[in-house]
Amino acid sequence: MKSLFALTLTAIIAFGPVSAAYADTSGTFTGASDHVTKGGVTITKNADGTATVTFDQSFSLDGAPDPRVGFGKDGSFVSVADLGALKNLNGAQSYVVPASLNIDDYNELYIWCLEFAVPLGVAQLN
Rank of each mutant, 00 (worst) to 15 (best):
T8E: 13
V36R: 11
V41G: 01
L9K: 13
A20S: 13
F5M: 12
D74A: 14
F77S: 07
R68N: 07
G72F: 00
N88D: 15
L89I: 10
D24C: 00
N126C: 06
L109V: 08
V53Y: 04
L4E: 10
F116S: 15
L109E: 03
N102Q: 11
D66E: 14
T25W: 05
G40H: 06
D56K: 01
E115R: 11
G75D: 10
A123K: 03
A92L: 08
S94H: 03
P98E: 09
A21Y: 06
A6D: 14
A99R: 08
V41P: 01
V97N: 07
V78I: 15
Q93H: 08
L109T: 04
T10C: 12
T52M: 06
E115N: 14
A6S: 11
V53M: 02
P17E: 15
L120E: 04
D104W: 00
F15C: 12
T44V: 06
I43C: 02
P17Y: 09
A32V: 08
Y110I: 09
N126M: 08
E108T: 09
D24I: 03
N126K: 13
D66V: 10
T10D: 15
P119R: 07
K73Q: 14
I43S: 03
S79V: 10
F59H: 04
N107K: 02
F55E: 02
A81S: 11
H35C: 05
Y110V: 09
D82C: 05
P17D: 15
K45M: 08
L9H: 13
T28F: 10
A81D: 06
V118K: 13
T44R: 12
F15A: 14
T50Q: 06
G75E: 11
Q57R: 10
L101Q: 02
A20H: 05
A92S: 12
G70C: 03
S76L: 11
W112L: 08
